[in-house]
Measured scan of single mutants.
Amino acid sequence: DLSALRVEEVQNVINAMQKILECPICLELIKEPVSTKCDHIFCKFCMLKLLNQKKGPSQCPLCKNDITKRSLQESTRFSQLVEELLKIICAFQLDTGLEYANSYNFAKKENNSPEHLKDEVSIIQSMGYRNRAKRLLQSEPENPSLQETSLSVQLSNLGTVRTLRTKQRIQPQRTSVYIELGSDSSEDTVNKATYCSVGDQELLQITPQGTRDEISLDSAKKAACEFSETDVTNTEHHQPSNNDLNTTEKRAAERHPEKYQGSSVSNLHVEPCGTNTHASSLQHENSSLLLTKDRMNVEKAEF
């Protein structure tokens, strides 16, 4: 173990290094160091905050020279020094078990990766560091076993998940096959086929009936047209017969005018059967003409 005197000496050296690497504005270890034209180094955030307070150039807090945003430059070497100082402080805390008085939040800088452990060898070769390295080497064999167990647990979990997924996939297939086998029997399929065939026959029977009705309507229309044509021909046949009657009536009127007047009046009210309204109107006109002729003949006879 380190003596108290040596611990104090190391602590004083760390404090001196820390004062050199402090920012003059925030009085902390410089984060993202930036250098000016006057070779003074500050935190990048502190300098941008200072420049944004005034429009135009501002003055350096140490030498009062003008500073602009374009004049600022990043210093990589200074950032490396800060990183190495942080590593020294971490090693000091691990070796002594004491917390550094002016320690900052170094938890963000710590890294437990194997590459980081290899890099620590180049920091300080001390008894405390050696003991700590031995402890780490002793704890390393235990870690692979834990990793193997965790991997086995994960693989077993994956296997159970896969088996569950396969079961879920197989179950719908089985149910679907069961439904297909038990849903419709052979008799049901035959009945469905016969039902479809009967429906098709009914459709075939319905369509000819409609065509037959249309044919019957067409035949009825044709018969009505033929009947009207026969009526017209009958009226045409009746007209010459009426003319013959008129000639006979004229002759009778010349011989017996008194008797014919009474008979002509009675004939006005008689309509021949089986004739249309057109034929009756023609008869009325003929009878009126005959009456006028008879009157003329009677007057001539009187004179």
Rank of each mutant, 00 (worst) to 15 (best):
T230R: 14
R169P: 15
E32F: 03
E299Q: 05
N52E: 13
C38F: 00
D119G: 08
L21D: 00
E258T: 09
E236T: 13
L203W: 06
R6T: 05
G159N: 08
D294P: 05
F227E: 11
L146A: 04
A224T: 13
S79T: 14
E22A: 01
K250F: 06
E140I: 06
A91I: 02
K55C: 11
E8T: 08
T76L: 10
T160L: 06
N297S: 07
A253C: 09
Y104T: 12
V270L: 13
G210S: 05
K19G: 01
D244S: 03
A91V: 00
N15G: 14
P57T: 01
S263R: 02
M127I: 12
L21S: 03
N243R: 09
Q125D: 13
I41T: 01
P33E: 02
D218S: 11
C60W: 01
P144N: 12
I30R: 06
L62K: 04
I124H: 04
C273F: 03
E202I: 06
L86R: 09
A220T: 09
E8M: 10
R135V: 04
K222I: 12
N65T: 11
M296G: 05
D213N: 01
T76P: 15
A223I: 13
E22C: 02
E32K: 02
S139W: 12
D200G: 05
A4S: 10
S266V: 09
T207R: 08
K259G: 11
L136W: 05
S219G: 04
E8V: 09
E22H: 02
Q59P: 14
L282S: 04
D39V: 03
T275C: 08
V161L: 11
N242V: 09
V121T: 05
A4I: 04
K221V: 04
M17Q: 01
S152Q: 15
D1E: 06
S58P: 02
L217I: 09
N267E: 04
Q239F: 06
K49H: 04
S79A: 05
I123G: 12
L151G: 15
F106V: 03
I170G: 05
C90K: 12
A193S: 13
T166E: 02
L27F: 01
Y260G: 09
V232D: 14
E32Y: 04
K109N: 07
E9A: 09
L203E: 14
K37M: 10
Q147D: 14
K134T: 02
R169G: 13
L164K: 13
N242Y: 08
K250I: 02
I89P: 02
E148C: 11
Q171S: 08
V153Y: 14
E99I: 14
T235S: 12
T230G: 09
L21Q: 00
R162F: 02
F92H: 00
I67W: 01
I30V: 15
H256P: 12
L217C: 07
N105C: 04
K55Q: 03
Q138S: 11
M296W: 06
S288F: 06
E214D: 12
C225E: 05
R70G: 13
L136N: 04
V232E: 08
E140V: 08
E142I: 13
D119R: 04
M296I: 15
E148M: 12
L5Q: 14
E226V: 13
S219A: 04
Q201L: 12
D66V: 10
H256I: 14
P172S: 01
K44C: 01
E302V: 08
Q93P: 00
A301V: 14
E229S: 14
K87A: 13
S113L: 09
N15Q: 07
D294G: 10
S145F: 07
V121E: 04
S216P: 03
S79E: 15
R77N: 14
S58A: 09
Q11T: 13
L289S: 14
K221N: 14
D213I: 03
E22W: 02
P33V: 15
Y195G: 03
Q11K: 11
L164N: 00
V10F: 01
S145H: 11
S113A: 09
D39Y: 07
C46D: 02
T277S: 05
S266E: 14
L27E: 02
V198S: 08
V265C: 10
R135S: 10
H256D: 15
N276A: 07
E8W: 11
V232L: 05
P141F: 12
T233P: 09
L146Y: 10
E8K: 14
L62W: 02
E28G: 02
L72I: 02
T163W: 04
Q53G: 07
T166K: 11
C273I: 12
P272K: 11
L50F: 15
I123S: 15
Q209L: 06
E140L: 13
V270F: 12
N15Y: 15
D244L: 15
D39W: 01
A101H: 03
I124V: 07
C225V: 05
D200E: 04
P272G: 14
P172H: 08
E254Y: 07
Q147K: 15
L48G: 08
G128E: 13
E148N: 13
T275R: 12
S186L: 03
R251C: 15
N286I: 04
Q147M: 08
P272L: 15
I89C: 05
D294L: 11
E285Y: 12
L155M: 15
V7T: 08
C23M: 02
S176P: 14
Y129F: 06
K44I: 00
R135Y: 07
N12R: 03
K221S: 02
L5I: 09
I123N: 13
T247L: 07
Q73S: 02
A101L: 04
L151Y: 03
Q93N: 07
H269Q: 03
T36A: 01
K54M: 00
C225N: 03
T247D: 03
P141Y: 11
Y195A: 10
K19L: 01
I88T: 02
V10I: 07
L94Y: 01
E249N: 09
L50Y: 15
L21P: 00
N102S: 14
K37G: 14
T68N: 09
F92W: 04
E99S: 11
T248Y: 07
L282P: 10
E140K: 10
L158C: 03
Q18M: 03
K69L: 10
I25H: 00
E28F: 01
K250N: 09
K19M: 01
E84C: 08
L291W: 03
I88A: 02
K222G: 15
L5C: 07
A252E: 03
T160M: 06
S281P: 08
L137D: 14
I30Y: 04
L164C: 08
R6F: 03
K49S: 02
K69Q: 14
T292A: 08
L155W: 03
S216G: 05
L2K: 12
P114F: 12
Q209K: 09
Q138N: 08
D213V: 04
I215V: 10
L21R: 00
L50A: 04
L158P: 12
R295Y: 09
K31T: 10
L98F: 06
N267A: 12
E32N: 04
V161D: 09
M296S: 07
T233F: 11
R295I: 12
F42G: 00
R162N: 02
S156I: 04
N12D: 07
I20P: 00
K37C: 05
L217H: 04
D200I: 04
I206K: 04
C90W: 12
S280K: 07
V153H: 06
Q147I: 11
N246F: 11
H284N: 09
I123F: 15
E99N: 09
L217A: 05
F78H: 15
D39Q: 10
K222Y: 11
I123A: 14
N102I: 11
F92T: 00
N131T: 13
Q154F: 03
G274S: 04
E74I: 15
N276D: 06
L51G: 00
